[in-house]
Nucleic acid binder design. Structure first.
Lengths: 361, 361
DNA sequence: TCTGATTCTGTAATCGTTTACAACAGGACT
DNA sequence: AGTCCTGTTGTAAACGATTACAGAATCAGA
């Protein structure tokens, strides 16, 4: 061992060091081994001798070598990254989910690419580009409004990057998802209002067509029906999860002749927007109307009044989705059948704060 | 032209099509040209004949070819992406800045990698890995708390990826930055309070050591001094930009024997946390104390009461930083000297809402 | 017809890894 | 001594694009 083995092209390693980034070749020369051995010492340390390994790591230290990911990815036929499709980066709800994903992916040494699917910021071409499996080894989709066609029509099924949904999902597409039980969660929220004696309960829903909108509304209606309560059409208001749409809903509420005494909102942002707009018009929550939110974003605990809401474990949703995707990617690498088409449902809980109160008789 | 020029390895193009992703080779075969021509048709359409170009694009359409970015990046010696270092993904303030960056970068066909520098999610090794110029062609840093050493000690200056700061910056490091004039902005806020007749004005600051904390505090102190007002030490409270630290500040305020009648907060989140905590204790804003925030996040307009604050053009900050980085990257590619070490300052404005009021005499 | 310029295209080297395969050394066993 | 492992290393061929260079084709002008 320790044969000099000079690189044919360059005569001096010093020379190699002065220009450009050091490559595996430079490390090999410095350690007196072949590039293959360096590669092995890095990716599979068990197979090289203790002494060799030490020599290689010393050489790496000395040269300041870092692996060229483009070359590695090319050779390994993978990209070393996953992309996350987010409906709207501007929505604070997603930040902690992304944090959870980023945390797990960083452990696995995978890049996380975040793409906003909001119209305008990425057009369909861009999204398709991400889906073509040159950009990513896997995909986490947080946007249930993407068309199933878009998600399906991409390359050969065998070469297609695995996909998992989180939070939202696309109905027509059978793919594993990490979600909460939205129906049960909505029932929890409405049940709370019923228990407080409310009989006139409205619902501020998400955007039409969204799965969360549908499931949460269904849960609310079920619970209402069980309590033998009316489902008044004019008490169901369409929103879009945003603060602004909550404010718009307040206008609707105020215009009502017969107003519900309680409102279940499909997102905290809408609940806050609703409360703030009401407040500006001189109404007060929970005095004039009780409000339940959904998500338990940070602001919920720090609103005026603090918001009663459904807590979603956002970081954990992100982590779980990431781990699930990792398993599917691993299976594909090993050419094993997909380990799971089964989804995972995370528990939610009702957090009672001050935006709801017993109905005054 | 139109010579068959079969690929030596495979005999039938059909064969190539059935397995794996189509490569530039498959396109070349389908179009009856060489791979070089396909590459040229793609990256420099001007130099190939109209007919050839059409043949190539037809073949691309037909084969469903998409360029393998790993191969391209390896050959071009670039990565096709930029990374953004965010202090805390969980903080909603950054979402719109990221959206602005993503928008501009998408136009330039560059990936945006987002890395959270919060302790725990990415350790120093990870961050260094991003900085080594194998992961990214450029860097946008939103975190002013990173040590200058960390940012400096990476590889050869000539091969180092260009960096621009946005919002925050590191004092010791001479790098272009996209910022607002924090001193002037703070003066604007305090001036507003002074104009309303307040003479007892406190400041809820950011985390110690942060540049924003320092500059905003300096602006506040300047304005106070000009108005001939006391700068009481116990009216300056340390925070960390979060809702929680705003709530903590409320405890401090309530414990004060002599309380300021107005508080200038270095972030909207702290302002909201402060107001909410006060409200829970039976105090009311602006009745008991006027509050000015900073940032104008979405919630500011939808809080109870709507928050008087300093508006930051967040999307525009992101866009500007992205464009600036693009220029520096371009210059480096062309081996031109860096076009700018000069920073850019974006305008802010005071948005008066309902959390401040004229002091009652 | 010949020369030279111009335009287009093909050949082949190259980017920096990984990994199948072969080679080799050393030890255990017959 | 010969055979067969086992463990470690080197050789060289990929991976899929880009691009310097050279060659072919076309045309103008003499």
């Amino acid at each position: 061992m320790m044969a000099p083995a000079r690189r044919p092209g360059r005569t001096e390693r010093e020379d190699a060091m002065t220009k450009g980034v050091p490559s595996i070749r430079d490390v090999a020369d410095a350690a007196g081994v072949s590039t293959a051995t360096v590669s092995r010492a890095l990716s599979n340390p068990g197979v090289v001798t203790e002494t060799t390994r030490r020599a290689v790591f010393d050489a790496i230290e000395q040269t300041g070598y870092t692996v060229n990911v483009a070359a590695r990815n090319l050779r390994r036929r993978e990209t070393g990254g996953v992309v996350v499709l987010v409906p709207n980066l501007g929505n604070a709800f997603f930040s902690l989910i992304l944090a959870g994903i980023a945390e797990v992916m960083a452990e696995a040494d995978l890049n996380v690419l975040i793409a906003d699917t909001a119209p305008g910021v990425n057009d369909e071409r861009q999204i398709l580009d991400y889906l073509g499996n040159h950009r990513a080894d896997g995909l986490i989709v947080l946007d249930g409004m993407l068309s199933a066609d878009l998600l399906l029509d991409r390359g050969d099924p065998r070469t297609r990057a695995p996909l998992v949904f989180a939070c939202e999902w696309v109905e027509d597409l059978v793919r594993p998802a990490v979600t909460i039980d939205n129906v049960a969660a909505a029932r929890l929220a409405v049940r709370h209002l019923v228990d407080l004696g409310h009989r006139d309960i409205g619902h501020l829903a998400g955007p039409p067509g969204n799965v969360l909108t549908a499931t949460r509304r269904a849960g609310a209606e079920q619970c209402l029906a069980e309590a033998g309560l009316d489902l008044r059409d004019d008490w169901f208001i369409d929103g879009d999860f945003s603060l602004r749409s909550g404010a718009a809903a307040a206008e609707r509420w105020m215009a009502l002749r017969h107003r519900p005494t309680a409102l279940f909102c499909a997102s905290d942002q809408m609940a806050c927007g609703f409360i703030a707009a009401l407040h500006r018009a001189g109404y007060s929550v929970p005095r004039d109307v009780s409000v339940v939110g959904f998500d338990d974003i940070e602001f919920a605990a720090h609103f005026v009044p603090p918001l009663t809401t459904i807590h979603q474990p956002r970081v954990e949703i992100g982590r779980t989705a990431a781990r699930m995707l990792l398993r599917r990617m691993e299976a594909r690498r090993m050419e094993r059948p997909d380990p799971e088409t089964t989804s995972e449902t995370l528990p939610v809980r009702l957090v009672v704060r001050d935006s709801t109160r017993r109905v005054s008789v």
